[in-house]
């Protein structure tokens, strides 16, 4: 990629009548990495992306690609590739014809059509009417549309929805590769677990507002450690002394802000032997849920436990 382009969203707001879908949202997306755009249902992800793409008019604020709005781009489809969640196809048209139409409209070489269809694994099905496609096949066709103009920026709304495990593995690797080529990749999802293996950084919104922007590692440090000891009082005292925030979760103690190794070391120094020490597997998801203000699943069932003999 000769030039790289970032996405800049600044003080963006959008109301549909009395519904405030996006409020004063600001974030930026850097090239060369995969950025997850996360939030629960109705958080305003799709609305934000549609504003960015010039499909929906903002009430106020701006959303640009390196300073230019989508409409200002000289060749939008060759610069920004888009797959939005809705399946926007005429069922009576073949995949090939579908892509050829938009290639024609955007003055993109027709040879790209078969190329991108092969790339997403639809090569053999491209002459079939889209009406007979499965959800996963439609999702792939949407992705082929996004790739049509060999764009520098990719904006994908829930691209993993409806894909089979093989398809999910494939798209994760594919997004990585696109980012490594220096492209800007923004992928939305309402599930952190769905994308956390494949994104480098995250923009998290809830009810139209930004709640987190930064690396996933930063988010992970807010994950909890579950710990317990026969001498629970001694353990609590030692952890308190080390400045940890402790909460009782079910039959165990939950420690935020410290890693499992640190908790173990503190207990060891205090001479308290542990009966349980476990980094919650759902920690990332819980941190996410805490951020977006949803209820976290009660208890947070530990998936793996290390028992330390007393």
């Amino acid at each position: 990629m000769a030039t790289q382009t970032s996405i800049n969203v600044s003080h963006l707001s959008k109301s549909f009548g009395s519904v405030e879908a996006v409020s004063d949202l600001s974030f930026s997306v850097q090239p060369g990495q995969v950025t997850g755009f996360l939030g629960p249902n109705g958080a305003g992800k799709t609305t934000t992306l549609r504003i960015l793409l010039g499909l929906v008019a903002a009430s106020s604020g701006s959303a640009t690609f390196g300073g230019q709005t989508y409409r200002e781009l000289p060749r939008p489809l060759a610069m920004v590739g888009t797959a939005l969640e809705a399946s926007s196809f005429h069922p009576g048209r073949t995949a090939r014809d579908h892509l050829a139409i938009y290639a024609t409209a955007a003055a993109i070489d027709r040879t790209r059509v078969d190329l991108v269809l092969d790339q997403v694994g639809l090569g053999g099905l491209s002459r079939r009417r889209v009406g007979g496609y499965s959800l996963g096949m439609r999702q792939r066709l949407g992705l082929a549309f996004a790739l049509l103009g060999d764009p520098r920026v990719l904006v994908l709304d829930e691209p993993i929805n409806g894909l089979d495990p093989e398809g999910i593995r494939w798209i994760r690797a594919f997004l990585r590769q696109l980012a490594e080529e220096g492209r800007t990749v923004l992928v939305s999802s309402h599930l952190l677990s769905e994308v956390h293996q494949s994104v480098d950084s995250a923009v998290i919104i809830s009810r139209g507002r930004l709640v987190y922007e930064g690396s996933l590692a930063g988010l992970e440090s807010t994950a909890r450690v579950l710990v317990d000891a026969p001498d629970r009082a001694g353990l609590v005292a030692a952890l308190r002394a080390a400045g940890a925030a402790i909460e009782q979760v079910g039959a165990a103690l939950s420690v935020a802000s410290l890693g499992a190794a640190e908790v173990g070391a503190i207990a060891h120094r205090a001479g308290v032997s542990l009966s349980l020490l476990n980094t919650e597997q759902a920690g990332l998801e819980d941190a996410f849920l805490a951020l977006v203000g949803a209820e976290s699943p009660p208890g947070g069932v530990p998936a793996t436990t290390e028992r330390i003999p007393a």
């Binding site: 989508y70 939008p76 888009t82 809705a86 005429h90």
Partner: peptide, 18 residues
């Protein structure tokens, strides 16, 4: 009307925002 019905206005306006 089929552009509205099948939501093909989305790819249409993405390919040509004018």
């Amino acid at each position: 009307t089929s552009e509205f019905r099948h939501q093909t206005l989305t790819p249409t306006f993405l390919a040509n925002p004018r």
